[in-house]
Design a protein around this nucleic acid. Structure first.
Lengths: 219, 219
DNA sequence: TTTATTTTTTAGGTTTGTCTAAATTTTAAT
DNA sequence: ATTAAAATTTAGACAAACCTAAAAAATAAA
């Protein structure tokens, strides 16, 4: 089955909203897509007709198994391109979203297969979000933020939830990026600040506010 | 200025048809784009309105300077992606056209700039066609086909005009690709066949029919 | 449990890019 | 120089994806 750019955008947005909260509404979807509720209703009917949605007038809607699979495929394409843009073209990871948004709609299966191979089958995108595999399987990694991470264990940065330019500056200054290996030396209960030791760099202290945004996994 | 995918496809097709023959007709354009003459007329008006075309009803049309620049930018994007697909993702060069056709419409300037840098500023695409630079300048290389190339000079394959699967097989067999260095040992005037010596391989004979399709440049 | 508010849907219209069929202009042929 | 043929354009429709404004349904409040 083949989908228009617009259809793909709706499917992807529904998928994302479903991850965050299980009640996706016409309004929230309209808001997410920067469009009007009436347009959303039109598309919902269309997606129901194409058997990607369970949908009952006024009562709500939800991606079915097929819709989910389609969504995961789009997410896969998006994240692979983001990974490409950052690791190969040298984009900063807070600049790649919009471009990946366009690239993700290029539909060749073979292209994505070969891109995946070229990138060496990455597990997560530059923001630390997992890349679904060909079959839509998502490899879930248990991650904790630095404000709650265990002390004196080897950790690796898996994702950062705030992707503003300001945060990026701060992270660059402390030599922190996705994949960076570090340890938490100690945590100050007074203000929740954390002393960390980034591999090959001097230890430093980060505020709780920052720590909460940095997610890590430990092996 | 920003253009729709459809507008870009028309601009590009007009550009290509203008290279081959200087009389581009509504019919030939419709044929090139697999559409109907009436649709072409509609778009011609639109492109004229956007000041990319000189156009007079029933009399003909032609890209103006602006239109040409836009076209060269699209061609640049197309050929950079083709180069990427072949050299990085490992596609065969007769399989990349359709995918590049989609990728070329992703409009970020920065993307193309960074892609160009990543690919190390290639001069020609995998078919040997020149890649216009950022400003639309095309570096023209004088090339001759093997049926007319000088004898016993160092040559390098610049392009191949027939890109069928059959031709590709033949070229692979003789270890010939874009950039391959070779010499013409002698030419048989009886049937126009040519004996060539590909660097690091035994010499072999190719028919005139094949020789006419292989273009080379000599330094 | 009514009434008010919010959410969602319908009805009807717009734009982009396409189409068919008919009309117009140009070109070729007699 | 007419007439025939071919190329091009106009007129009017259609589908996709969007919109606004009004109607209908669901939810919250009195």
């Amino acid at each position: 089955m083949n989908f228009s750019v617009s259809e793909e955008n709706y499917i992807k947005s529904i998928y994302h909203l479903q991850q965050q909260s299980d009640t996706v509404t016409t309004n929230s979807l309209a808001n997410e897509l920067q469009t009007k509720p009436a347009s959303v209703t039109d598309m919902l009917k269309k997606l129901q007709l194409k058997k990607l949605l369970e949908y009952e007038k006024y009562r709500g809607f939800r991606l079915n198994a097929t819709g989910n699979k389609v969504a995961l495929n789009i997410v896969r394409r998006h994240r692979l391109w983001e990974y490409f843009l950052v690791t190969k073209l040298g984009f900063e990871w807070n600049k790649v979203h919009d471009i990946a948004e366009e690239l993700e709609h290029v539909s060749s299966m073979e292209l994505i297969q070969k891109l995946d191979n070229f990138l060496n089958y990455p597990q997560t995108d530059p923001h630390g979000d997992p890349i679904p595999d060909m079959n839509g399987k998502v490899h879930i990694i248990k991650q904790v933020n630095l404000a709650e991470a265990p002390i004196k264990k080897n950790l690796a940065v898996s994702s950062v939830s705030n992707q503003s330019q300001e945060m990026l500056e701060l992270l660059n200054h402390y030599h922190i990026g996705i994949g960076t290996e570090l340890k938490v030396n100690l945590r100050f209960s007074f203000d929740g600040s954390v002393e960390i030791k980034v591999l090959k760099h001097a230890s430093c202290i980060i505020s709780e506010q920052v720590a909460k945004n940095i997610f890590v996994y430990h092996d």
